[in-house]
């Protein structure tokens, strides 16, 4: 018996402009293709950085970030490629960072887990689980003090809700009615530990309902559902209605880090991975768009070609960029 359900896209989507529908597709495609390219080239050992791929989780980054403007803030974690790309981070600079180049978004100092692009509201990321959550809350505090109508989004995994700092942050955000959305990407694992070994029940959002924050859950592989849920939360936050919590149930198709599937490690089965691969958020959404004639196959092809080129360019840029100079090793400790 299958443990997964098919993705059920809403039949009524008239409220979402067609432009947005195709942008959602484009954003996911971008994330997927960058990740696949990393997956493909990682074995060359030229990206000397531990990569945590988000293949299978593309819909969350895309669905949430397409509700944001360039001025809004996003804080992410060790699995942050998708959030960075969906928020409009410079893909070339991200790939260059993976290749440890001076042109990387963190000038080769940070690597895959420390992405930044301040020009689009990506103020940094933490690879300490839960570490970015209070920081995102602080950015929301700044917005609330400055009344600049910006919204902050904090992305984190299911293991992050095991850290006390999450509850402390949300308490404060509620207290101050801060414009922040806490997005929990529940991919059912923390490294090799399944959720059931770490938490007493698996509907994370219910726990947060209990502490008074409006809490939602969405199928994290259904980009429309994520988009709609995030829209409601973000609209309320922007209007001064305070924080929300969204749990997106999903699955990472790759191993915790690197390019395996995890089956070889032995903590999950081939069948489980295969079932979730069928729920690929990108492929399913593409079929949906085609079936509903929202995109033609020609348009899909053009978008794919376009993104392929973009990805090629980014890798080309990264691989031909200069390395940092060892004499500059102590630069940037202070501003």
């Amino acid at each position: 018996m299958k443990s997964t359900r098919p993705i059920v896209f809403d039949t009524r989507i008239d409220d979402i402009p067609v432009r947005v529908l195709s942008e959602l597709y484009l954003a996911m495609l971008r994330i997927q293709k960058v990740e696949l390219k990393i997956d493909d080239l990682y074995h060359e050992d030229e990206m000397k950085t531990p990569v945590h791929l988000c293949l299978g989780e593309e819909a969350i980054a895309a669905g949430v970030c397409l509700n944001l403007g360039i001025e809004d803030y996003v804080f992410t974690n060790h699995r942050g490629h998708g959030h960075y790309i969906a928020k409009g981070g410079d893909v070339k600079a991200m790939v260059a960072e993976l290749y440890n180049r001076e042109t990387g978004c963190s000038r080769g100092r940070g690597g895959s887990m420390h992405l930044v692009d301040t020009s689009v509201g990506l103020l940094g990321s933490s690879s300490i689980v839960g570490g970015g959550v209070p920081i995102a809350t602080g950015a929301a505090l700044a917005s609330s003090l400055k009344k600049d109508r910006r919204v902050s989004v904090s992305f984190f995994g299911d293991a992050a809700v095991e850290e006390g700092v999450i509850y402390e942050s949300i308490n404060f955000a509620l207290l101050k009615k801060l414009p922040i959305i806490y997005v929990c990407e529940n991919n059912l694992y923390s490294v090799y530990s399944p959720l059931s070994k770490r938490q007493p029940h698996n509907e994370i959002y219910r726990r947060f309902t209990g502490i008074g924050i409006p809490s939602y859950h969405a199928d994290g592989n259904n980009v429309i559902e994520v988009y709609r849920t995030a829209k409601e939360a973000i609209t309320r936050a922007r209007a001064g209605g305070g924080p929300s919590f969204i749990e997106c149930r999903t699955y990472r198709l790759k191993d915790h880090h690197g390019t395996g599937t995890g089956v070889e490690v032995g903590y999950r089965t081939q069948q489980e991975v295969a079932e979730w691969a069928e729920r690929c958020p990108v492929k399913n959404y593409e079929s949906f768009l085609l079936e509903r004639k929202l995109l033609t196959s020609g348009e899909v092809e053009r978008l794919n070609t376009y993104v392929n080129l973009e990805v090629e360019e980014a890798f080309q840029f990264a691989r031909t960029s200069p390395f940092p100079k060892e004499d500059n090793v102590t630069d940037y400790l202070f501003q």
Binding site: K48, G110, V329, T330
Partner: peptide, 16 residues
């Protein structure tokens, strides 16, 4: 080690 956070780049690591 140098009094800086560990850099990611292998070239800088070697220096660190």
């Amino acid at each position: 080690s140098l009094d800086i956070p560990t850099p990611a780049s292998d070239i800088l690591e070697a220096k660190f």
